[in-house]
Amino acid sequence: MAQFEEVSQKSAVHPMPVGLVLQYGTAGFRTNAKQLDHVMFRMGLLATLRSKKTKATIGVMVTASHNPEEDNGVKLVDPMGEMVTPAWEGYATQLANAEQEGLLTALKDVIEREAISMAQEASVFVGKDTSSESLSQAVLDGVHALGGHSKDYGLVTTPQLHYMVCCQNTQGRYGEATVKGYYRKLSQAFIQLTKNVPNRTDDQKALLVDGANGIGALKVCEMETYLKNELQLSLFNDGSSGKLNHLCGADYVKVQQRAPKGVEMTAGERCCSYDGDADRIVYYYSGSAGRFHLLDGDKIATLISTYLKELLTQVYAHTQSLYLPMMLSSLVGKLQ
Rank of each mutant, 00 (worst) to 15 (best):
K128P: 00
A115E: 14
T225I: 15
G90H: 01
F292E: 08
S240Y: 05
V7Y: 04
L335E: 03
H162E: 07
C272N: 09
Q160V: 11
V253C: 04
L247Q: 14
Q192T: 15
Y174T: 08
D296M: 02
Q160M: 15
D152H: 05
T306W: 03
K243Y: 08
L46D: 03
D251T: 05
A138E: 02
D78T: 00
A87M: 03
Y284A: 05
L140E: 10
I215Y: 04
G44N: 05
A106Q: 02
C167W: 08
V263E: 09
M326G: 11
R258S: 11
D277T: 09
K180L: 07
N97C: 00
K185E: 14
Q120F: 03
L45M: 09
G297I: 07
V39H: 06
K243L: 12
L295D: 12
N196F: 12
N245V: 01
D78A: 13
D298A: 14
L227V: 09
D129G: 07
L328A: 13
A212R: 01
S131C: 08
Q192G: 14
E230V: 00
R200H: 13
A87H: 02
S273D: 08
Y307W: 00
V315L: 15
S150H: 13
Y274S: 01
V179P: 00
V84M: 05
Y285P: 03
Q168P: 00
G59W: 08
G297C: 01
H66G: 07
Q171I: 01
A267H: 13
R184K: 14
P68W: 01
L46H: 02
A289N: 15
M223I: 03
K243F: 07
A119K: 13
V110F: 04
A12R: 14
G216W: 08
